[in-house]
Amino acid sequence: MTKLDTKALDKVIARYEGKPGRLLSILEDAQKLDEHQYLSTSALEYVSEKTGIPLSRIYSVVTFYAFFSLKPRGDHSITVCRGTACHTRGSKKMLDYLKQILDLKEDESSGQQSKVFLTTKDNQFTLMTVACFGQCALAPVVEIDGTIYSNVTERKLKGLIDNIRRKGKNKK
């Protein structure tokens, strides 16, 4: 657990002072601030306390958008698009393949069956899904650390993963 950087959070909150819909922007920046790219309970509670926005509302917003994560992410994020176009072009197979090569098993207890959020034991990779990236013409697409890769195949994915692994654990 990393310590909450309240000074940085204060700055974020001040930046959007008085702006309509500020909660989304604050949460977005707060997530970026975190070393593990997620919103910790202490971050949520701090934002609520400082802005006066009820915790129930914040939780509602955070759970609505796939973009927000309530669990720490690994050093590298992999997001598989599970939209209709990607699905017809084999995204389920890509997802299963990634689970296999990263040695990830579905968490049965999570209850949110349609949402995938799995992190490798060594904390190097987090595998997620998204409803649609809007890049349907390039289906199937997979996003790795912010870059969208189009027309992916198992071979292409293996190459990308191996590349990251070769570069070492701590470099992004």
Partner: peptide, 19 residues
């Protein structure tokens, strides 16, 4: 009081509390 709100989206939506 704001104890409850909609949580999740789509068919996963439920009314729940913070966390």
């Amino acid at each position: 009081v704001h104890a409850i709100d909609a949580v999740g989206r789509g068919k996963q939506t439920k009314i729940s509390t913070y966390g």
